[in-house]
Simulated assay, not measured.
Amino acid sequence: MKKLLVGIFLLNSLFSYAQKNNNSAILSDITEKVKNYYVDKETYKKVDSLFRSEFKNGAFNHLSQKDFAALLTQKLRTNIKDEHFFVKYLENYTPEKLGDEKEKEKLNNYNNSLENFGFETVQRLPGNIGYINFKGFASPESSEKTLAAAMNFIANTNSLIIDLRENGGGENGMLLLFCSYFFDQKTDLYTTYSRYNNKTDLNSTQSKVSGEKYLRKKIYILTSKKTFSAGEALAYFLQQHKLAEVIGEKTGGAANPVEHFIIQNQYLLLVPAGKITSLMNGKNWEHIGVIPDQEVKSEAALKLAHSKILKNILITDTKTELTIPEIKNLINKLEQ
Rank of each mutant, 00 (worst) to 15 (best):
S180Y: 06
L269T: 04
T223Q: 00
E249T: 07
Y236S: 03
S194E: 12
Y267D: 05
K250T: 15
L234F: 04
I262W: 11
K242L: 09
Y196P: 10
K226A: 12
D184E: 06
T223H: 04
F178V: 01
N198V: 07
F183W: 02
T187L: 07
S229G: 00
N265A: 10
L177Q: 14
V246S: 13
K226C: 00
E212K: 12
Y214R: 00
E259A: 14
K186D: 03
G248Q: 13
G248W: 12
N197C: 04
S194K: 10
Y181H: 10
G231F: 14
E245H: 13
Q185D: 08
K225A: 14
E212G: 00
S224K: 09
A255I: 00
L202N: 10
I219T: 11
L202F: 13
Q264E: 15
V209S: 02
K250A: 15
F178C: 02
S180K: 11
K199G: 09
F178L: 03
L243K: 15
V246Q: 14
K213M: 07
Q206V: 01
F228H: 05
Q264R: 14
K208W: 00
K225M: 06
R216V: 08
D201A: 13
L238G: 10
C179S: 14
I262G: 12
S207A: 13
